[in-house]
Design a protein around this nucleic acid. Sequence first.
DNA 1: AAGAGCGCCAACCGCTGCGAA
DNA 2: ATTCGCAGCGGTTGGCGCTCT
Length: 238
Amino acid sequence: MGRKPCCAKEADLKRGAWTAEEDGILEAYIKTHGEGRWRSLPKRAGLKRCGKSCRLRWLNYLRPDIKRGNISPEEEDLIIRLHKLIGRRWSLIAGRLPGRTDNEIKNYWNTYLRKKVQNQHEPAVVLSNLHHLVQVSREGDLVAVSKADKAPELVPGESFSVLTEGNWWDLLLSSDAGEAASAVPVPQLNLVSLCGDDSRCDLHAENEGMLEAWMCDPAQTSLDRELESLARFLHCDD
DNA sequence: AAGAGCGCCAACCGCTGCGAA
DNA sequence: ATTCGCAGCGGTTGGCGCTCT
């Protein structure tokens, strides 16, 4: 590989695949002493591994709440939606999929979903509550607005693009935009900067924080509710 | 039957952010 | 304000197994 080992100082550290014996030692130690202090854990547990390796092995394989088996269509759908929403933030996405790890989702995306999504003709994303979020000038440029009382005059069917996390979203204002809004339990994104002549804009940094807060909201516990909420956010019919 | 090619996935690496000193 | 150590993150790699020729 040509890279230096992560724990190069300790030459006798073992690397590569974990044995069942090592798994047993790590599992037993963490069950007794709990997670954390990864750096010193190998020494305390009597493992010839670096702390990073122990942490990764526990989080990705040994943790008792790990879900085994294939990714379900519902999970796959959620991954695609979340990826569209927040980009390659695998740990955040994994946080919305109980029992799945960021590594597993990252691998699944890189080996399967990326190609699948690329092969699909991507329909425009329709945001029914778009009038709550953005304003489009008569010239077709986006300008900042976030409050309903500043609801701009948008033309149903009008489309434009928004950049989030390096992904361009093609947005299309739905025809029922006038009735959505207030009941939608998602962050109100402020679209604050933009606009070349192609009507594209960047999401302001503060929106990323709002998104993350929403993603981490413990009230959002049920997968069904998440899907429903996301579907409402993205105004998808399924 | 065997070897080349390919895909999957566990594991590693470097980087970053954050809290403590 | 700065430095240091650690945990966590996302990108990348390499081994293994399966398929194809």
